[in-house]
Design a protein around this nucleic acid. Sequence first.
DNA 1: GTCTATATGGAGATAGAC
DNA 2: GTCTATCTCCATATAGAC
Lengths: 211, 211
Amino acid sequence: MPKLSFKAQVLQAREQAILDAVVRLLAEKGFELMTLDEVAAEVGIAKASLYKHFDSKESLAAAAMVQLLEVCLAELDRLASLPGLSAIERLHGVVRWALNTQLAGQMPTLPAQNSALRGALLADTGYLSRLDDVSERLGAWIVDAQAAGQIDARLPIELVLFTLFARACDPVLGVMRATGRYPDQTLVDWLLHTCFHGLAATAVALPTAQP
Amino acid sequence: MPKLSFKAQVLQAREQAILDAVVRLLAEKGFELMTLDEVAAEVGIAKASLYKHFDSKESLAAAAMVQLLEVCLAELDRLASLPGLSAIERLHGVVRWALNTQLAGQMPTLPAQNSALRGALLADTGYLSRLDDVSERLGAWIVDAQAAGQIDARLPIELVLFTLFARACDPVLGVMRATGRYPDQTLVDWLLHTCFHGLAATAVALPTAQP
DNA sequence: GTCTATATGGAGATAGAC
DNA sequence: GTCTATCTCCATATAGAC
């Protein structure tokens, strides 16, 4: 790739700072309640300057979602590269990563059916292609796990996939955390357990807290 | 109770129509995107007239949420009155009712942590007392189900309770429905199954579609 | 209580100097 | 590209006649 001038590097770093702030604010307040004034304030630039980097609030949020998917894809790469993991163990790893990302305040909730953001995302090919990529790779693991008798083969792949997406932003984590009664990693273990084994009593051991 | 004059009855019917519209719009678009113009249009009255019935958008939404909790309490009454049901069967019944309510477009999503609605709800004693009521009654069933070995006794009651609330508005239902590939009741059965038994393969039979 | 008309404020987006 | 200042729209909320 071409060498970037110092100025271009500064510019890119600023854009990165903007996207980080947007991801955080999307996770904290959601698209509707996030204001560009807040974004500008958090980055430390003028609101008007945001428009030199992005066309609109929607495109700004879409770029942030693309960045999140990139981070997700990197995690999928990491899990895929770990030797000796079964398909279900990789899926556990993804959910654990997602819940920890949520704990870190960096997991936006899924855009509601009616949000203005939804339309922008569906029109953004960069977003869609990465979403497809994530779905394809998770889908393959789901198929493998079903073949291995680890995921219920009576459930359609897409149901499993959407459920994993939904659990990544499960509001239960935030509400339970707000009680202040349990360590973060215990909550992650519990949610991981209820995601794959439900609320019913089972012979399955609860996962023990992992970093 | 005192007999209502005809005029008072008309007034009460109008308030009921308003609350129904608000519940529907809250379910469809959420609090932030719901506008009072829409509410007024749907009811067929002028926007200003809404303010003769309710002080603000927040109090209007809070009244709608109270109404939803009333419907929920009535369903809890109904399930409690059915003879011969075990605690877990009653909990299944509640989740099934919630999912069907969501299918009917009458289940608003939980207010986000940061929403202006949240503050209004936490300040509304009518809402809080009914929420406590629902929580108490579900909590008792959860304790019973844990004692009977039907709900995992290693999970705190509040975790189970919050999970049930979250599953009532699970976005997976709407997304799966949008694919148009599966009958509504099949989706309800699947979500009921994943709520209590998770995504993992089990020896448990899938629930068969119920009305 | 219901209406039409209006006030008010907030947030996305733009203008134009530097 | 960044800034200050401004425009514009839209949604909540209110005024005042009937």
